[in-house]
Amino acid sequence: MDATKLRRAIARTPLAPVAAFPKRLAKVARYDSRVLGTSARWLFTSREHHNYTYDLTKLSRQHLAWFVSVACDVPVGQVRGWFAELEADETLRGHIEAATAASARRGLADRQVRYARRIGWYAMVRARRPAHVVETGVDKGLGSCVLAAALLRNTAEGHPGRLTSLDINPEAGYLARATPWADVVDLVIGDSIASIRALDRPVDIFLHDSDHSRGHEKREFDAVEAKLAPGALLLTDNVTITNVLAEHAERTGRRFLAYRETPAGHWYPGDGIGVAW
C-alpha cells in the first residue's frame, strides 16, 4: 500500500486524530513562532503603549479603497489617488516627526509616521468635502492632523471646512497645534457628550474615537443625531468591538458598512472603520 492510500485508510479509523496530531502541532508552532517573533521585535523597537500605529498590508489597503469608494460613491481609482496624496505630503510627515520628537510624551511615541486606516478617513473627507467634521477622542492628534490635511486640500480647491476635535484630556492634540493644520482645527477640552450638545453648527462628518465602551459610543451617536446636516456621514473607530453604529443605522434608516484593517508586520490585530450614511 502506498503512502497516500495508507493515510486515507488511517483517516477512516479511530487512530485518525492521533495520526494527524504532529501535522497540526507543526502548523500551530509555525504560526505561533511568527507571532512571537513579531511581538518581540515590536517590544524592543517601538515605544508605543496604546493607539498603536502601523502600515496596512497591500490587500487590506486595496479593500479599504473599495470600502471608501462604495460608502462615498466615488471611483476607486480616485480613492487610491487620495491615499497617495496623503502619503506624499512630506510637510505633514516632517511636522509629525519633529513634533513627536520634541514632545514631553516622546518616550511613549514612535517618530515613524504610519497612518493605517486613517488614510480612509482622509479619503472620505476629500470625497465628501464637508464644511464641518467632528471627531471625539484626539490623543496625540495624529488623526486630527490627517483630517485637517484633507480639509486644507479641500479649501485650496474651493471647499472650505473645519474640524472640531473633542477630548477630555487637556494634554491631547499636541500634533495638531501647529499651522497650517491648527488653522482649521477647533480643539475643545471637556466631556464629549456635553461638547456635542453644545455644537453650534451642523455636522457633515462625525467620527467616534473616544471612550470605546458600548454605552458611551451609543450616547455620542444619540447626542449628535440632532446636530447632523442632511446626508451626514457617521463613522466609528469601534466597529471591531461593538455593533452600536450598525444598530443606530438600522434605527435611523441608514445604510451601514464595516471594514477591518490588517496591520503589516505588527502583533496587534488591527482596528477598523464603521460607516453609516
Rank of each mutant, 00 (worst) to 15 (best):
Y174E: 06
M124G: 04
W181G: 10
E48L: 03
F44P: 03
G143K: 01
A127Q: 06
S69Y: 08
A276I: 06
R201Q: 14
V138Q: 00
R118K: 11
A102P: 02
V203G: 05
L233G: 01
I196G: 05
L86E: 07
L15T: 06
A71T: 13
G274M: 09
L187R: 05
S213F: 11
V188L: 09
A98E: 15
V68R: 02
W66Q: 15
P180I: 06
I119S: 00
M124A: 09
R34Q: 12
A99I: 04
T155D: 04
G143P: 09
G158C: 05
G274E: 07
K227Q: 01
D271W: 08
T45H: 07
Q62R: 15
T252V: 02
T91G: 13
S165D: 03
T242L: 07
T91S: 10
A156C: 02
V70T: 14
R197W: 06
Y268E: 13
E48F: 00
V68F: 08
M1T: 13
V113I: 05
A16W: 08
S165F: 02
F206E: 06
V18D: 01
E247P: 01
L36I: 09
A16T: 03
T242R: 10
G231T: 07
G253F: 10
N243Y: 12
G120Y: 09
G120T: 07
A84N: 15
T57M: 07
V224C: 03
G231S: 09
V133K: 00
V35P: 01
V133H: 02
T252A: 13
L147I: 12
I205V: 15
E135P: 09
A11L: 14
W121E: 04
H159D: 00
R117V: 08
G274F: 09
R219L: 14
M124E: 12
I241W: 13
R111K: 11
F206G: 03
I189G: 05
E247K: 15
T240Y: 11
P263E: 11
A226E: 14
S46P: 00
A276N: 02
R117M: 09
M1K: 12
R197V: 10
A102C: 08
G158A: 00
H208Y: 01
V68Q: 02
R105C: 03
W82D: 04
W277P: 04
E97T: 14
D110R: 01
F21S: 11
L245S: 09
A99D: 05
